[in-house]
Simulated scan of single mutants.
Amino acid sequence: MSTTVDVPESSNVEKGRPVAADAAARPGGSNKALAIIDFILRLGAIAAALGAAATMGTAEQTLPFFTQFFQFEASYDSFPTFEFFLISMSLVGGYLVLSLPFSVVTIIRPHAVGARLLLLILDAVFLTLAASSASASAGIVYLAHNGDQDTNWIAVCNQFGDFCMATSSAVVSAFVAVTALLLMVVMSGVALRNH
């Protein structure tokens, strides 16, 4: 009498490959890591975009000229480009806040293609908006700092130093948000490619 136990081959090997090797080859682990990094980048981009909007919205400086009744004032609403910057960075920050639940879905379900594709498309749209407003404002900030000899525009930052510092900080913060959005678009593309 023999006490042999027959173990079916399918429990250890599935279609010629060991089950452990098949589980390691699945891209779910890398997609989950990308989703976690995406969520962290979203939080950073929210802070950068809303910080840029708040800094630009409070950028103003008044210089007295001879008397108190005649003054020079510089504020963000004196420049249409800075108004566009404030509105667009507020929209980008609002979108990023609203996108957080979808980012959480991609962490919980790393194979969810619909949520990842939606984030990729909307991230690309808001990346374009953020990059255009940051670039246009960077041009104005450059002219404020350096002026332009060919067109006889003088550098106004010698007089309005606080205003120029605030607008420069807002533009730098906006480019941080742009970089984070660019990384999110790339990571969403990589995660979709893994499917």
Rank of each mutant, 00 (worst) to 15 (best):
T4C: 08
S10M: 14
N12H: 12
N12C: 13
R17E: 12
A20S: 15
A24Y: 07
G28Q: 15
N31S: 14
K32Y: 07
A35H: 07
A35N: 06
I36K: 13
I37C: 12
D38C: 14
F39A: 14
G44I: 00
A48H: 04
L50R: 06
G51K: 07
Q68L: 15
F69P: 13
F79T: 03
F79Y: 06
F82S: 00
F84Y: 09
F85P: 01
L86F: 06
G93A: 10
G94L: 06
Y95W: 08
S99E: 13
V104F: 05
I107N: 02
I108S: 05
R109M: 10
A112Y: 14
G114L: 11
L117A: 15
L118V: 14
L118G: 14
L119Q: 15
L127D: 02
L127S: 00
T128V: 09
A138L: 06
I140N: 07
N146P: 01
G147K: 03
D150G: 14
D150W: 09
N152K: 11
N152S: 12
A155G: 04
V156C: 02
V156A: 07
N158H: 13
G161M: 11
G161D: 13
T167Y: 00
V171R: 02
S173D: 05
S173L: 14
A177Q: 05
L181A: 09
L182H: 04
L182S: 13
V190C: 10
